[in-house]
Design a binder for these strands. Sequence first.
RNA 1: GCCCACAUAGCUCAGUAGGUAGAGCACACCCUUGGUAAGGGUGAGGUCACCGGUUCGAUCCCGGUUGUGGGCUCCA
Length: 627
Amino acid sequence: MSQVAHTSSDEMIAYGKGKRMPLSLYKLRHSLAHVMAQAVTELFPDAKPTIGPPVENGFYYDFHVPKPFTPEDLARIEARMREIVNKHVDFVRREVSESEARELFKANPFKLELIDGLVQGVADDMGDKPTDAGQATVGDARPAASVISVYTHDTFTDLCRGPHVSNTREINPDAFKLAQSSGAYWRGDERRPMLQRIYGLAFYTPEELQQYLHTQEEARKRDHRKLGAELEIFLFDDEVGPGLPLWQPNGGILIEQLEALAKKMEEEAGYERVKTPHVTKEDLFLRSGHLPYYAESMYPPMTLEDGQKYYLKPMNCPFHHKIYAAKPRSYRDLPLRLAEYGTCYRYEQSGELFGLMRVRSMQMNDAHIYCTEEQFESEFLGVVNLYLKYFRIFGIEKYVMRLSLHSDEGLGKKYVDNKPLWLKTEDMVRRAMRDGNVPFYEAEDEAAFYGPKIDVQIFSAIGREFTLATNQVDFAVPPRFNLTYTDKDGQEKTPLCLHRAPLGTHERFIGFLIEHFAGAFPLWLAPIQAMLIPIADRHLDYCRNVERQLRACGIRARVDDGPDRMQNKIRKAQSMKIPYMLIVGDKEAQADAVAVRLRTGEDLKAMPVGQFIARARQLIESYALTL
RNA sequence: GCCCACAUAGCUCAGUAGGUAGAGCACACCCUUGGUAAGGGUGAGGUCACCGGUUCGAUCCCGGUUGUGGGCUCCA
């Protein structure tokens, strides 16, 4: 079949979960995956290819091999791939019968399983390939009588839906690179065999590849794990345990500032603050339903002498429900909004821990709103608007709101088994978001066990996706706690509950903020806001005097009284990303002034101390992003 | 939890065909008192992650443990 080169009229093709890339790039990457499979099977005759789709920035292929690949193996494979590409071989598509396909791949049980899938008309799951018609596969259910096709290039034939480049001359041999190998479960199922996945990077041109590598390097510089250590914000200690961060004084300031902000915003929005314990009896989580649905994410229980089991809390909701239930509630009490920066513990799998972004102890910007069904929409939108207010303060522009829905397969397993209520509440959320004109997309099988939610998705510096904040509907748990209110008509009714955490957890939110600001926090958040730098030691007393004045006005100031020269003190303050460096010499000391240097390098020259204080306070109080 | 890699001074990293280690920065002290991103000198600091094994001898080779990183699975 004659094929297209990289045309400008490139259509976009879907891959992965709702992602898209140009068709020509897709073909390029997909073809490289086949070339890699050829190279691997030549060099490692025992290797059985399984699936190998294009992905963001490149491609991968999973192999069943007796021994994992070493970095040296990757180098050999990459070299062999380059030879194959340079042979300028054609990619040829052929349709085959089921029996011929089975004969071709009889030595490869993985391919045979894929053929089974094709024959049964189940999604073949070869990794998000286009259908024969060339459109995107979004989900499941392909027609039963699927065509089975194979692609051959050079000496290698693979079961594949295509499409591919027509000839490897369309691939620039210097625009790809094997990145890493790792383990991956067959079909993503941890009960099935572990395969070895090789990731490759692939672009149209070597320049794009270099650009990508350069961007990655830059991203690593703002990685919160690196900056968090350099800026002395948090640390992990082997004797404390994995996923249990220790906040240094600078981190403590960030936390206190965020809590102060939350408190202010929540007071304005009609929340009341509560406090609840970190441990609780098993009974509470049995009632809430966490134990069946959530047990594997909880730390194992502590058993007391009387046999009573206590758990560390993974969530705050059941405690808040108890506070709701403490007395009879009237419709006049609703909506009732209970807020708490609660500390929760989740036993995340060890391999999942990731700096501050995924930890085992976390402080959550939690609140539960109990309301009637009529109040639901305005309460839900109120929360969404609170998010947006926060995001404006932080200058967060790159985020996506995701409506996370249940999946039918998960009902009774991951999700409370009540489909009509799922559909109803999902629709309530959808309507609220549309009425509020808030853009969002929908994702199946991402809900909480008790209801649908709106998640705010962000990306870490190195590109990993996380839920930063969440706003969840809970239709399942209030009845379990027998939560009720007396309505106007005197009837007892069950309230709806909204769980919300606009600032997520301190851990993830601060991890995100570190990367978002590359460590250069806005003034109101900066752990040290102003560093006083004397030009000579004789200015130290004056510095200390100014420091006292600034602190008295609520400005976090310090004096650098170390042995360095002024230049080096500036350099150190700069590398700690301290917003203001206040340089003081004879002139300033005499004029009751400070010479203000910004961390941007801008020099504001000398100004009276009072003027500096006024400026800083105004910027702090307005949560300004400028200095 | 699974696969692989890595673990040397507070940090960034050298190093040894197996003979108990080194630099820069940071830190301490001395000289210098300097006007907007590194002044000079001296010094202290390491059970080479931990536990075993091989060896006359292990930081180095082997096994295990712990931790971290990249993925897989999973979530704020």
